[in-house]
Nucleic acid binder design. Sequence first.
RNA 1: GGGAGAGUCGCAUAGUGGCAAUUGCAACAGACUGUAAAUCUGUCCUCUCAGGAGUUCGGUGGUUCGAGUCCACCCUCUCCCA
Length: 376
Amino acid sequence: MKFTVNTTLKDSNARAGLLQTAHGDIETPIFMPVGTVGSVKAVHQFELKKDVKAQIILGNTYHLYLRPGINIIHEAGGIQKFNSWNKPMLTDSGGYQVYSLGEKRKIKEEGVTFHSHIDGSLHTFTPESVMDIERTIGADIIMAFDECTPYPCDYEYAKQSLGLTHRWLERCYKRINETKPVYDYEQALFPIVQGSVYADLRKQSCETIASYNCDGNAIGGLSVGEPVEKMYELTELCCCLLPKDKPRYLMGVGTPANILECIDLGIDMFDCVMPTRNGRNGMLFTSEGIINIKNAKFANDFSPIDINGTSIVDVQYTKAYLRHLFNAHEILALQIASIHNLCFYLWLVGEARKHIIEKDFKSWKTDIIKKVTNRL
RNA sequence: GGGAGAGUCGCAUAGUGGCAAUUGCAACAGACUGUAAAUCUGUCCUCUCAGGAGUUCGGUGGUUCGAGUCCACCCUCUCCCA
């Protein structure tokens, strides 16, 4: 894997770059749609490629391990073949599920034991087993197994947890280096910075993570409920400490405004369920602002979903029609909303990249944030 | 004409003496940040200084401390027999 920074700015830490993987190139900054079980919910591969213009999508180790199971993916020849995406993929390690599954899991030094949310069966993830599973899934970028701490999180817990995440990273790194890819292409391990909201822990974590000299570095444990200013503050700190010549990935972020602010701080890669999940729940992010399409006021609004939208669905369908589809519980509603939101997100990061290259990112950002955060 | 049954907050339902009244749908609004999410939460008779207050269960009377619930008559609808 190769990362090249093409453009940097004087008045911002934003940069435009190119990340090259075995399955294709990724222009940064980039937003990566989340496809937990190997599918970006409600969005067809064709639309994902042609309309959304996604360059890389996520899969999730925990979910794919439970269903369909690693043997099936192995038999299929890896996840990119299994789901016909055939383009770059990244797998999250299941560290987020350690956080989100709450009561269902138990964390120990060795690893995490958990009950499947599907059938209640008991399983254990260790850094070694997670690396083996991610090898078999076969994503181009694989995430280290970490603990995503909750918010609020007291200092002592955050410190203990960070120590564990670092020891787990050491084990992940060792395992990756003593194993070979299952398929005929390289996989890059990205370690994850933790440390909750504590600057000294984050600093310590960045230094530890940077010392591994991996192909890219991630920041985790943010946007879990902390104040947005705190998130920016910690993101900025991490961006300053993580290597400049490696992509920086802010995990699980975020709103359009979050993404623009964090690009400004030096983040290159983002993923978030927001465009897809919120889309399925009737929330649209548009060039003119945020819309709850289920609201009664759109019942007879025959204007396009997004007058400036880049997606075919934006000009093809009216707000009134999309609202009708939601009210009628039509499956097409979820598809249109998801495609629209993903197109918007990819358009947004694409524009950001363009304005970085044109060196007017800062002023563009200020203007566009005002527009896209407007509540319609 | 005779017999049987039914009328509850938009619709459908629960309710057999303490009830502003169950549940579902619909409606209206909100939430959602490395997806246990096509999910979840709230409002949903009227007014409200949000503590309450006022009117409710086809209609009119009655019994009772108290009635959606018991009684009488009336109205409407459904089914069966003519």
